[in-house]
Amino acid sequence: MKENWWKILASVLVLYSLAGGLLIEVPALPILHESIRNLYYHVPMWFAMILLYLISVIYSIKYLASGKTNHDLIAVECVNTGVIFCFLGLASGMLWANITWGDFWPNDPKLNGSAISTLMYLAYLVLRNSVDEEQKRAKISAVYNIFAFPVMIVLLFILPRMTDSLHPGNGGNPGFGGYDLDNNMKLVFYPAVIGWILMGTWIMNIRYRLRKLENIENSI
């Protein structure tokens, strides 16, 4: 029970954010209106994705330093789980964009950067499946992963700030602050971020353990 406290916390926070996101009062803002509730779902997906990708990079570096198979398995399962959250973030973002901007995919640098980043990580998974030899596959994908992460950071957080962008906090567009992200929203938003990050870690852990069992079966 003591070892699983964070899994219980993840479940409680996610359920709380799902319910609170629909029920707790939000500020009446022009253009956004009730769609601002999507902040509780869209943004935490990206937080979870980025953290999983970061953990993946750390374990790719560890693999290159140690050559331990488990480090490679953690790296790839972090990416596999991160891609799930990536698609959830893209889907929720597209719905929000259609409501507020009138288009599922307007010509926005952050949206285009997210599409390129998604393709980069899908290419990582394709790369792994295209190399048969285990150690060679792990080394090549580890190097690719290490370079992909900073490129993603540039595409998502640096380039959008250097040009016009519809996204809050980018291209001179003010980010969410005290006016729109009020105390009621903070009571849901921050638990949602923590909950989905923990949930992502939990999913990754399950996938990693399953991958280890598969490797053991294949080696018998």
Rank of each mutant, 00 (worst) to 15 (best):
W196Q: 11
W196N: 06
V154Q: 09
L127V: 10
G169K: 06
L156M: 08
V154K: 14
G169A: 09
L198N: 10
L156D: 03
E133A: 02
S141V: 07
A138V: 02
R161W: 00
G178H: 14
S141C: 13
K139F: 01
L187F: 07
L155S: 07
N129V: 09
P160D: 14
I203K: 02
V151Q: 08
I158A: 09
Y144D: 05
V143H: 09
G169T: 12
L125T: 10
L166T: 09
L166Q: 14
N205D: 12
V143S: 07
M185N: 10
I203V: 15
I146M: 03
L210G: 12
I158K: 13
F189H: 11
A148N: 02
F176P: 06
P168E: 12
G172W: 05
V143A: 13
L127F: 12
I194Q: 08
P191Y: 03
E214F: 00
N173W: 04
A148Q: 08
W202V: 05
V131S: 01
L127H: 11
W202A: 08
L122R: 01
W196D: 11
R207P: 02
T201A: 15
I203N: 07
V193A: 01
Q135T: 14
I194T: 12
I153N: 08
P160K: 05
N205T: 11
M152A: 13
M199E: 12
I197W: 13
L198E: 09
P168R: 07
I158L: 11
R128L: 01
N215C: 02
L127S: 04
L166F: 13
G200C: 05
N170F: 12
A138I: 00
N170D: 14
I194V: 14
R207M: 08
F157T: 04
F176C: 06
S130W: 06
V193H: 00
R161A: 10
I194R: 10
Y179P: 00
F189T: 07
K212D: 11
R161T: 07
M185D: 09
I206D: 03
I203P: 00
I146E: 01
G195E: 08
M204E: 02
K136P: 01
D182V: 05
S130C: 11
E133R: 04
G175Q: 08
E217T: 13
P174R: 07
K212M: 14
E133Y: 03
G171F: 07
V143R: 12
D182M: 02
V143T: 06
E214R: 04
R137Q: 09
M204Y: 02
Y179N: 10
W196R: 04
E214Y: 03
N215R: 12
D164W: 00
G172I: 04
H167M: 14
I146W: 02
L122S: 02
W202P: 00
D164G: 08
V151F: 15
A138W: 05
G178F: 11
P168A: 06
A142N: 09
N173D: 03
K136M: 01
V193R: 02
F149K: 05
N183R: 15
F147T: 14
G178W: 13
N173I: 00
I153W: 04
Y179C: 00
I216P: 06
Y144K: 03
G195D: 10
L181T: 01
G169H: 10
L155N: 12
R207C: 08
Y179T: 07
E217N: 13
R211N: 13
L155A: 09
L213A: 15
L166I: 09
N173R: 15
M162E: 06
M185V: 04
